[in-house]
Nucleic acid binder design. Sequence first.
DNA 1: GTCTATAACTGGATAGAC
DNA 2: GTCTATCCAGTTATAGAC
Lengths: 230, 230
Amino acid sequence: MKAKKTRTRRGRPLKEDGADDKQQRILDSAEERFSVHGFDGVTIRDVAAGAGVDTALLHYYFETKKGLFDAVFRRRAEILNRMRIESLNAYEQKFGSKVTVEGAVAAFTDPLFDLAAQGDVRWKHYFALLAQVNNTPVWGGKTMARYFDPVIQRLIEIVRIALPTASAADLYWSYHFLSGALTLTLSQTGRIDRLSDGVCRSSDFRAVHERMAPFIAAGFHAVCGGKKRK
Amino acid sequence: MKAKKTRTRRGRPLKEDGADDKQQRILDSAEERFSVHGFDGVTIRDVAAGAGVDTALLHYYFETKKGLFDAVFRRRAEILNRMRIESLNAYEQKFGSKVTVEGAVAAFTDPLFDLAAQGDVRWKHYFALLAQVNNTPVWGGKTMARYFDPVIQRLIEIVRIALPTASAADLYWSYHFLSGALTLTLSQTGRIDRLSDGVCRSSDFRAVHERMAPFIAAGFHAVCGGKKRK
DNA sequence: GTCTATAACTGGATAGAC
DNA sequence: GTCTATCCAGTTATAGAC
């Protein structure tokens, strides 16, 4: 249904239509539902129905509901991390000591916006899921940290080149604002559509894309001492 | 059923120990639990236990679980709205045509930070709840809009004085970033504590307070055309 | 691997006593 | 107003057939 169709070839453990296909369909179904209703708002039954399988199969693959959630979270986190690390590395390699805050922020966010703009709904679901987890007390912070702290530290490393005199506290708080802004954008609540009476649309990632890096970079400079503006 | 106990008296509704006291305890208990676990993560039974009453009483006052949630949300929303509108009005009255973006943003956020700094845990719970709702798909956007759009429009009105040439889209997207940054801060996930290895603390609202307005104001200027920086 | 059937339990909600 | 007692729909999870 989702179609991935790794037709029989070589190398890779050939996972054509059988087992693994269903496993992915379960993950897709779960991803969509978790992203909309949160962990507690979703039932195993509904996930199973969405994937066209029985609930027992979910337990067979993922043992518990929590296990399923973790698998959903992990699947794309790993892909995303690779892309972002690569993007940041490439950016630094290209500009060396002449990196800018805006460039670094763009390198950090571009992979997300590219994926979103590409139109694969499953990535959109995943982003909405991230947004929720990022704002979830108790386990949300831990979960995010576990997977995403390395990329963030890498971003801050690069920003430090552009802002060598900035204090650690200023840098981390600035990142925090970036994280919040990014997260709300990814959560796609339709909030801004109503608020702006249709002038802006949540789904318009291009509009966000062109504004986010300049906005955030200016904030970094204002807080971290660059060219003061206060 | 909404119960408000229109006791015969006048002036202060005198709420000693009786009914209204329990009603408030229920709301406090619910507020705390919803803010931590979200709507679906909380049981009526647990709320009742936390308030030291029976579940039947919650139904007596609030009819349904959703009714309880709405009552929790509304209670402080109204107080908050009054404070923020007053703060924004006072700011504009004082500065007239000489308002700044930074000043307007500060007038918008100060009431929140003041309440948070004041140390009342119930307000902290409420803020965490707002953060979750703001990032909740489906009904989150609607709920936020219903209560908070007027204050936001008021903020934007004032920002417009400082940035008369800004486009509506730029203004709304900038507000969107502000909203995300503010929201994540209020959600108190402890995320930044870990990330910064203790340099920053989620609970340190003073640290956020002094950085937020300059950061956001610089962003507004960068995006809305003030003094370009790109 | 996948499904059927069901166990074991939890949740929101209500009728009715006090 | 407040609680006791209870209903019953819906939940996760598993044993066991195919």
